[in-house]
């Protein structure tokens, strides 16, 4: 009756509930520290129980476990190093960098899944989820890197784009991306995925490049929401509830936070979404 998948999914549910409580507590001054703790413990639980799932599945090779060990060690070391070493004034760009990596991770998971799909498994829903995950994840990755570069005041990211009509260009890119995702979903073919990555890379740049440095916190909040949606899409790819719940939680609450930050800075969310913010330093609000 109680096979490993059922146990794991019940534990995932516990983790998801802890994420919800953690996020809610994080929004209030008195409970914020505890909220972050609860959320981090939930993440640990999710990771441990996933390792148990791999163990119970029994198909993992020693090389697979080795790769997991290597990945967690390298990633953990880099994460700790950055979190401890970076100066307080550089926090926003660090968040942008972390956010980009999260989006990138979703893309790689979707890619790995795409590689392993048989023709019978390439059903419209799975292919749609892979396409969307690749699309949103890539935009998040490059968009966040541009945000990082702008806040770090790297010259390359300060220059205007050599595109005559960025709005029209973005619209065309967007349509092309949707068509590519549709082709993947309807035909079950994998090759459009590479083009999606390519076009989404361009879109990540063209969406964030024209936006001024003063508006970056709002942009990062929005990209944070995107990385949540990318994780949720990945959840549909691998049919995993904890990814779907946590991802959509971050996706939705991220939009609300973006809106709150916009209000604090006297901006409108519509202008952020369509990238029509005034370039350069606008009036900074009560934020920061």
């Amino acid at each position: 009756m109680l096979d490993s998948h059922i146990i794991v999914n019940l534990v995932y549910l516990v983790a998801a509930v802890m994420f919800i409580f953690g996020l809610k507590m994080l929004a209030h001054p008195r409970t914020a520290v505890r909220g972050n703790m609860i959320s981090s413990i939930a993440m640990l639980i999710a990771v441990v129980v996933t390792a148990y799932l791999v163990f119970a599945d029994g198909n993992a090779t020693w090389a697979g476990w080795l790769l997991i060990g290597i990945g967690l060690t390298i990633g953990g070391a880099i994460g700790v190093f950055l979190a401890v070493k970076v100066e307080m004034t550089q926090m926003p760009q660090l968040v942008a960098l972390f956010n980009g990596l999260g989006g990138g991770a979703s893309v790689f998971v979707a890619s790995a899944e795409l590689l392993g799909l048989t023709d019978a498994e390439a059903t419209p829903d799975v292919m749609l989820a892979i396409g969307i995950s690749g699309l949103i994840g890539t935009v998040t990755f490059w968009g966040s890197l541009v945000a990082f570069g702008k806040l770090q005041e790297i010259d390359l990211f300060e220059k205007p784009l050599p595109i005559p009509a960025p709005q029209a260009f973005n619209a065309v890119l967007g349509v092309v991306l949707l068509v590519l995702v549709a082709i993947m979903a309807t035909t079950g073919m994998g090759w459009p995925f590479l083009l999606i990555i390519l076009c989404a890379t361009a879109l990540g740049f063209t969406l964030v490049m024209p936006i001024g440095g003063a508006d970056m916190p709002v942009v990062i909040a929005l990209l944070n929401s995107y990385s949540g949606l990318a994780a949720a899409a990945t959840g549909f790819v691998i049919d995993n509830n904890v990814l779907i719940i946590s991802g959509s939680l971050v996706g939705a609450s991220g939009i609300i936070l973006t809106q709150i930050m916009c209000k604090a800075m006297n901006r409108s969310l519509v202008n952020v979404l369509f990238g029509t913010m005034q370039p350069g330093g606008g009036p900074a609000g009560s934020d920061d």
Partner: peptide, 18 residues
């Protein structure tokens, strides 16, 4: 903090690696 939660794709990463 919510950005850290979106790192939940680590679960998918573990599964597709192993």
């Amino acid at each position: 903090g919510s950005n850290a939660i979106s790192g939940i794709s680590i679960v998918g990463a573990l599964l597709s690696t192993a």
